[in-house]
Amino acid sequence: MKIWVCIKQTFDTEEKIVIENGKVDEKDAEFIINPYDEYAIEEALQLRDELGGEVTVITVGPDRAENALRTALAMGADKAALIQDPSLVGDECVLARMLAEAIRREGFDLILGGNFAVDSGSGQVAIRLAEELDIPHIGSVTGLNVNGRQAIAKRDAEGDTEAVESTLPVLITAQQGLNEPRYPSLPGIMRAKRKPLERLSAQDLGLSDSLKTKTLIIEEYLPPEKEAGKILEGDLDQQVQELVEALCGKGLSFN
């Protein structure tokens, strides 16, 4: 079983965002593996241990992204690939094409990724990748079984759960609840240093001119800060009464 996991290195979710010249400033930020991608890694490792095969983690990113790949290797992935090329600054369309090229060359049975990344939150790359590779996908998965040539998944559809069956190869995006990701063990961390990590450029993938970004960021900015409100005073019954009157006076539509 050839299993791929597409990951992204993102800001730690406890980071505050600083804007510098209309862009989010990365300086001094702590980076982690996108939390949704951790579910994808954990699921891949469990499936490999059950069915045999190997797990390759892949990302597109700058040098620092190697840390995320090493963490995934320390969790137990077998190999890693880092696509990196200064000429490749693009949107989800470009990212999906690069990943598709790298994965297609090596072959695949199952591809996993996070439901979305907690930084850009666009939720496009994995699903575009499925289309680029012309394979089905199941999005937002909270339970997964793979047997022979078939995947059976539980998909979270806004609170409802759909039981979905698909042929392999298939791409799965992981939703919270899929599993409990493991922490890298100390021996795992030691072993990860010696596991293979391949660096790929656009040229290596035979891509360059054909890759054109389709969208551009005009600017990034912080939302207006919210003013702290009113702490109610008096005895509890008074506070509750005041609150209910204030809210009913706002013309909120209940039910």
Binding site: I17, I19, D119, G121, T215, E220, L222, P223
Partner: peptide, 20 residues
């Protein structure tokens, strides 16, 4: 056409446009 969207779950926002 310009899309305004939250990033970092709304800690910041971005404006994006299309090429093409």
């Amino acid at each position: 056409v310009i899309g305004v969207r939250p990033i970092y779950a709304g800690k910041a926002f971005q404006k994006k446009k299309f090429i093409g």
